[in-house]
Design a protein around this nucleic acid. Structure first.
Lengths: 215, 215
DNA sequence: GCAGTTTTGTACTGACTAGTCAAATTGAGA
DNA sequence: TCTCAATTTGACTAGTCAGTACAAAACTGC
């Protein structure tokens, strides 16, 4: 790079002369749509064309702004964890009816969701964890971070349930929260395998019946 | 087809004249090796070259004998279910120490397995269910068949545990078996997400502590 | 109008994929 | 030893993939 070019850069940055065609799309909105597609189809089954169509932008704009498919994926994971930690269904239910009731309604809603005939969903983090077997370290890191944030929220409900005497108070609330999430994710996998909703509801019901400490 | 050709066929079939170069590989062994690779790497991440190298055969032989990658996959799933239903660790443990003890040791072994640093495994059916979201009907069918066979085995342990008074006798043993499998698979997903073994062991331990009916 | 930068659209690259095919190889029966 | 047919072998097809390159159009501030 010649010294003239360097000087040019300095001038441009100091005096902030340039200003050109503004970005036509909303980056956050595009990312939200990317998350939707990844959520629905998974990473592998989402081609770049799928992604671009959903995001409503062109190839050039995509690579200018988001650098790569994988980077977009990682950002989508973070975005999801943010959403769940602030304002998602977990925080909402936990505020409305704290303690054991929040856990049961969340679990029931989750089973409804993953066994939906029309549009089965389930936790995006669970999908990510299922698809990538911890092979990719950056993805692994993003998943763990997301899980821990969600576990923090569930833990608060568990602690409330323990205070109410609905869950054994000698157990670690973090362990219990992890167990609740594992049960949900396990039922999630079973649902995608094709097991009928009624069976899964009964299995889930059994779990809550057994986990609740007798009054 | 000329009548002469037809006559040829008849002669060949009646008199069993033909005999040519015999197959050099063992079909069952090749299938077993294919299952290993699918188990370890998943369907998507196993290229045909991976498959051929593991099976020790060439492209032509493969397509002659196994028809396609997917058909091989389906056969591998069936083969696994067969193995688990007859002589696998489940049947073994259930015979050695029936009832609740069998369930706990199986669960502990499973957690050990899925959190192994060197070679994490976990149920092949779980891997298949995780990878395919019920999109493909033939795979879906194979998974369900496999799950139901395994559930049958677990159900017997649950029934024994109920007779021993270790599990609530008013619950359906099939539902409880499904719950146990769901917990195992949920922990499996958590392990692959990267959660540490000790956390998962404690979560699993909590489950068995809560599920056991007080003496 | 000019300068500077982004968007748009399309064409392209190189790598990878499952699956095909025909010719060479092999071994058992005659 | 010869014949015949299945197996083996490796090159080949047709398609997909993420990512690159680039020209032309569009837009803002001067």
């Amino acid at each position: 790079m010649s010294s003239v070019l360097i000087l040019d850069l300095l001038v441009q940055n100091c005096y902030r002369i340039p200003m050109a065609r503004p970005r036509e799309f909303d980056e956050e909105q595009a990312l939200a749509r990317a998350m939707e597609v990844f959520w629905k189809q998974g990473y592998h089954d989402t081609s770049l064309d799928d992604l671009l169509e959903a995001m409503g932008i062109q190839r050039g704009s995509f690579y200018n702004t988001f650098r790569s498919k994988k980077e977009t994926y990682l950002r989508a994971i973070d975005r999801y964890a943010d959403f769940m930690a602030n304002g998602g269904p977990y925080t909402h239910a936990a505020q409305m009816e704290p303690g054991f009731a929040a856990l049961t309604t969340l679990a029931n809603d989750y089973i409804e969701s993953v066994t939906s005939e029309t549009e089965p969903r389930g936790c995006f983090l669970a999908h990510v964890a299922k698809e990538h077997r911890g092979n990719d370290p950056t993805i692994r890191q993003a998943i763990i971070a997301g899980i821990e944030r969600m576990r923090g929220i569930v833990t608060r409900s568990v602690e409330a349930a323990q205070r109410d005497g609905d869950l054994p108070s000698d157990a670690s609330p973090e362990d219990l929260a992890l167990l609740f999430m594992s049960v949900a994710w396990g039922i999630h996998v079973m649902a995608e395998a094709g097991l009928p909703r009624e069976h899964l509801k009964k299995a889930g019901g059994q779990f809550f019946a057994m986990s609740r400490t007798p009054a």
